[in-house]
């Protein structure tokens, strides 16, 4: 009578006698050990207990107050089960369930939904694991695609997100269009002086603020058609279309330095920077590729840095007879205007 009732309500039950020998096993539990009849085996020889742990014999187990069980088969597969043991006249009834080992168990023992009581949530748990895995996989794929799209978009972007200026990629595009000759142009390479100190002493937020202020100055002091790009941490390049007049470029450069030297305020603190500027003009080097002209502007910038910073230099073509290819040369600007003849000054 009790056997039938338990078989229907709890297919993973055991009925034990007073000595701890299995008298009857539920059909699902028996299915886990197809080669061996469970009835007749001793409960503690079939299972290893992890809760309660300090049990030396069946009497100990029966004396345990709450009767909560955590057990595993002694032989493989060592499926763990959780359950409850309740004393009844003449022995005990043990109700077991898979708990978290369910996923492995359905695989190991080829269980079907008929092996579970209709009240058991096992099937719902399996359904949920599978449904959630599928949904998670769909989300993961979406995230991967979004990530890839974001990287692609960033790679294709022409804007420096911090300053709103053009980025190096945009400048490269502009320069690439210059390689066919055509309109004369000048390249101004600007490197901030003392910017590292601002970053180091006042922090990156102050540094970012300074870069944004610099960007604003550069935009205000140039024409709409000029390309203003941030090409490195504190490096900027301006491409002046159709402007190759040395005195005028010099005035622009000096004005930029002067304005950038105005102390900038950030959260009540003062950030003082300056700038060094190198210039190269396409009309002074006919046939020079844009990337070479940029390199020359860079050399002139280096000269300005060496000259004590906060100043500007023009690149000058090496004197005739100078064997060195791409030798760094630069013109010292006069106090008021720049002479046309290049004064060579080897570093």
């Amino acid at each position: 009578m009790l056997d039938d009732l338990l078989t229907r309500l709890c297919p993973m039950h055991l009925i034990l006698d007073a000595e701890g020998t299995i008298r009857h096993a539920g059909p699902t539990l028996q299915k886990l050990r197809p080669g061996a009849q469970l009835a007749g085996q001793r409960f503690l020889e079939l299972f290893r207990l992890t809760r309660p742990r300090a049990v030396t014999g069946f009497a100990d187990l029966m004396a345990d107050a709450d009767g909560k069980l955590s057990v595993g088969f002694r032989d493989a597969p060592h499926t763990t089960l959780k359950g409850q043991i309740v004393a009844v006249p003449g022995g005990a009834v043990v109700a077991l369930s898979f708990g978290i080992s369910l996923l492995d168990a359905v695989r190991d023992y080829d269980l079907t939904s008929a092996d579970f009581a209709p009240t058991d949530l096992a099937i719902e748990l399996l359904y949920l694991v599978e449904a959630k895995s599928a949904a998670m996989e769909a989300s993961r794929q979406l995230n991967q695609r979004l990530q890839a799209a974001r990287i692609a978009a960033e790679e294709q972007a022409f804007t420096d997100t911090l300053t709103g200026l053009k980025n190096r990629r945009a400048m490269d595009h502009v320069l690439a269009r210059k390689s066919g000759g055509g309109m004369p142009y000048s390249l101004m390479h600007i490197d901030l002086d003392f910017f590292k100190q601002v970053n180091d002493t006042l922090g990156h937020a102050a540094g970012d603020h300074v870069l944004q202020q610099v960007a604003q100055v550069l935009v205000e002091e140039t024409r709409r058609e000029d390309t203003v790009a941030r090409v490195g941490g504190d490096e900027f390049v301006i491409v002046f279309d159709n402007l190759t007049d040395r005195p005028r470029l010099q005035r622009i450069a000096r004005r930029l330095i002067e304005r950038l030297e105005h102390p900038m305020r950030f959260q009540g603190r003062t950030c003082a920077i300056s700038a060094s500027i190198g210039l190269a003009l396409s009309v002074e080097e006919p046939g020079c590729a844009p990337e070479d002209l940029l390199h020359h502007a860079d050399l002139a910038l280096y000269a300005a840095k060496r000259a004590g910073r906060a100043t500007m230099r023009f690149y000058a073509t090496p004197a005739p007879g100078d064997a060195a290819r791409c030798a760094p040369g630069w013109a010292e600007p006069g106090r008021d205007e720049v002479g046309p003849e290049p004064g060579l000054n080897r570093a």
Binding site: V106, R107, D108, D110, L111, E130, S133, A134
Partner: peptide
């Protein structure tokens, strides 16, 4: 068709 509880698609 077969349906195996433990065989995940």
């Amino acid at each position: 068709r077969d349906f195996n509880l433990g065989a995940r698609a």
